[in-house]
Amino acid sequence: MYGDLGSKLVLEAKRAQQLSQSSGSDQLPLYQDDLVRNILREIAHLKKNAEILKSQQELENFDNKVAKCQYFVTLLCMERNKRCLLAYQKLRSDALDAAAWNRNGLDTASSLSAAKDGSSNLSHHEQEYLKDYVQLITDMKSGDYTDIDLSGSLTPPSDVFIDVRVLKDAGEIQTEYGVFNLIKDSQFFVRQADVERLIQQGYLQKL
């Protein structure tokens, strides 16, 4: 039937959602280009049907109940397909938003492709969207809310000083508050506010 491809797409969306919920990573699965294109083709087909029905109705000039019903069902099929497509796309864009907040808002926001290694999984419209959204976040942060770092951690600060262990060798890293020499497997006892960003970027592990 006409809605079947749409339900397959929604099933795919649901699977992606469960995957990201259970694993906690913000890696998006591949964009279902074929499926989406097939649904769009189906919609084009339905659209043609609807037009034919309409012209027939005008030709015969009496709107019998059968033609009305046919037109209505065609419209409903298109609407259902539209809902499935929009739901899929919105779910993906929400995941992109979350990724933009979590990762790209950090100090090295410029290297977008490096931060988002699943970049090839996105359609090029989505890549454009992600770029625009990251720009929007950057603009938001530079407005009134400069002093409260909006993309900062959302877990409340409990300790002033924490122990951190270096997970990745990163050489000498310059933070706004001073220079750290990050050698792999070394430990530091530092102020939490200083290393928050390095923890989010995955260089340090909180102990």
């Binding site: 769009l40 539209k82 796309q89 864009s93 419209h125 959204y133």
Partner: peptide, 26 residues
Amino acid sequence: EYHERHSAILLKLLNSTILRHMPPEL
């Protein structure tokens, strides 16, 4: 400002991927 701009870029995404292919009443 956030509301305006975010809905604009989201609409752009949806328009270019899906809504363009829809009949005008949808």
